[in-house]
Each structure stands twice: as C-alpha cells, then as structure tokens.
C-alpha cells in the first residue's frame, strides 16, 4: 500500500486516507524523502483529517519524517488531526512539540508560506 504524494508548485501535498500500519508508514517515509530529493520541494503538508488512530510508532515515524525533511530543507506541517487522535496521543504521552500543526490544509499552506517567507 503506497500513499500518493502530490506536487503543487514548490510544495508537496499528502492526504493520508488509509489506516496507517507500520509498513505503510515506513514506506511513506522513504517515498516522501526521495520525492523531496527529486523535486526540491520547500514545504510539505501532511493532512491527517481521515486518520482515526495514531499509535506511538506512527507518531514516532511522523516526528522522524518532520525532522528528516527539515534536514533536507523542507518544512513540514501536519494538518487536520482529529480531537480523538489528539487525546490518544496526549494519553500516550506524545506531545510532538517540535512538529508544526494547522487546523486544515488551507491554514497549513498559509503557515508554510509564512515560515518560508519570514
């Protein structure tokens, strides 16, 4: 199972619409990094609106992806995290303080633009 990565000008858009298992997440990490390498994207938005569950491993992978992308010069924003997911993560003790977040895709893109310009 592969997650499609869309290119929009200098940004990459990813909407995760499947249940993330460990294998898919790791595959996604590889795909995204090589896509950043290929396109030279400056910003990445990962939209999690339709994700109902994030466990500690997926959370770790997501945090890693954000840091790795940053190393490669791309700023990542996570968008659309559902309340239930947020509560689960907080209960697991994962606050992901270093990861930028936004309410939806629109605000995510705004945030990226702000950070890249300013």
């Amino acid at each position: 199972m592969r997650i499609p990565i869309l290119k929009l000008h200098e940004y990459l858009l990813i909407t995760i619409q499947v249940e993330l298992d460990d294998q898919t997440a790791l595959q996604f990490q590889e795909d995204l990094l090589s896509k950043i390498h290929d396109t030279g994207a400056k910003g990445v938005v990962i939209d999690l609106t339709s994700v109902d569950m994030i466990d500690s491993f997926i959370a770790k992978v997501l945090g890693d992806v954000v840091r790795m992308s940053k190393l490669m010069g791309a700023q990542v924003v996570l968008t659309g995290i559902q309340p239930a997911v947020a509560i689960t993560l907080i209960d697991l003790g994962i606050s992901m303080r270093e990861v930028p977040t936004a309410l939806d895709l629109e605000q995510g893109l705004d945030k990226l633009r702000l950070e890249l310009e300013g």
Binding site: L78, T79, G80, I81, P83, V85, A86, I87, L89, I90, S95, M96, R97, T101, A102, L103, D104, Q107, G108
Partner: peptide, 11 residues
C-alpha cells in the same frame, strides 16, 4: 495536556 492537544490540532 489540554494545551498540547490543542496544539496538535493546529491551534
């Protein structure tokens, strides 16, 4: 905890 969760949502 509440503040962290709110931040995760993007606000």
């Amino acid at each position: 905890q509440a503040a962290d969760a709110v931040r995760l949502l993007g606000s």
